[in-house]
Amino acid sequence: MCDLKQLVRDIPDFPKKGIIFKDITPVFQDPKGLRKTVAMISDHYKDKKIDIVVGAEARGFILAPTVAFNLGAGFVPVRKPGKLPYEKISMSYDLEYGKDTLEMHKDGIKKGQRVLMVDDLLATGGTMAACCKMVESLGGTVAGCAFLIELTFLNGKNALSKYDIFSLIKY
């Protein structure tokens, strides 16, 4: 199996000066890297009775549907404002470099469903915390939060302390 960490590329000063962006596109370009990423996340949650996998725009869209497929679950996208056509809920949150808002269809999660949250990167935890709050406001139960990368020095786990956190790569 390939070493996923070796496939991640650092991009300095993106999206703004002083930030080192962890570019995961080489992981997705590598067939073994992509397969390993999806398999490891899926395997970790295979016995957790997941009904729905939620993925946040944009890179969470790459992992979440493939994990959902492996788990026999549905997929629900969380998008930036103005991208979803149906009735939606929204949540604003702080990023490590600004503010943002996300939206989800109101009928995306049904009461009592077990939901796996998937995104590419855990930094400060703001994006995932907002997604979890939306899921819970619709009556879902967050069964876990899975990430390809966790930036441990930003302490994002603190914002998600009540959830099971699973990260494949830690910096």
Rank of each mutant, 00 (worst) to 15 (best):
P81T: 12
K170M: 03
V115P: 10
I89T: 15
G125N: 11
D23R: 08
A58V: 10
T101N: 11
L71D: 03
V53R: 05
F75P: 03
D120Q: 06
P31M: 04
F75G: 04
F61W: 13
E87T: 12
T127K: 07
K46I: 07
I11D: 08
I20K: 13
D51E: 06
T141P: 00
A123S: 14
L122V: 10
G126E: 07
P15V: 02
K106T: 14
G55I: 00
I62N: 02
K133W: 05
K5Q: 14
L138G: 11
F14N: 07
L95K: 14
L160G: 04
E103T: 13
C145H: 00
A146V: 03
P15D: 01
D100F: 03
M40D: 15
K170Q: 14
I24K: 00
D23I: 05
Y93L: 09
S161Q: 14
E150R: 03
T127P: 13
Y171M: 06
L71H: 06
L138T: 11
T141S: 14
F75T: 05
F14E: 04
L168D: 04
I24L: 00
T37W: 02
K36Q: 15
F147L: 10
M91S: 15
L122M: 09
I11W: 12
T152C: 13
I50F: 05
L84P: 13
I149C: 05
L63M: 14
I20L: 12
K99D: 12
K110A: 13
P12D: 11
K157W: 03
T66G: 00
A159G: 06
H44Y: 14
G125Q: 10
F61T: 02
I165V: 13
K157M: 04
I20F: 03
V115A: 12
S161P: 02
G33K: 02
G139L: 09
V135K: 09
I169F: 00
M128S: 15
Y45R: 01
D23M: 06
S90H: 14
Q113A: 09
G98K: 12
T66L: 15
Q113Y: 08
M40G: 03
K99Y: 10
F14R: 08
I24T: 07
L160P: 02
L102R: 02
L148N: 04
G125R: 04
K16P: 00
A146R: 04
Y97E: 08
D51V: 08
G98C: 11
I11V: 15
S167R: 00
S92W: 09
Y45M: 04
C2R: 13
T25A: 08
D13W: 07
I50K: 03
D10F: 06
S167L: 03
A73Y: 07
F75R: 05
Y97H: 12
N155V: 00
D30F: 02
T25Y: 11
K5A: 15
E57H: 04
I52Y: 01
P12Q: 09
Y93E: 10
A159S: 14
N70F: 11
V135A: 10
L154S: 07
Q6N: 15
L148Y: 03
L160K: 01
G139P: 11
L148Q: 03
G112T: 04
K5V: 12
L122R: 05
G144Y: 10
D47N: 14
I52E: 01
C131K: 03
E96R: 10
K99N: 14
M91A: 15
F147Y: 15
K22F: 06
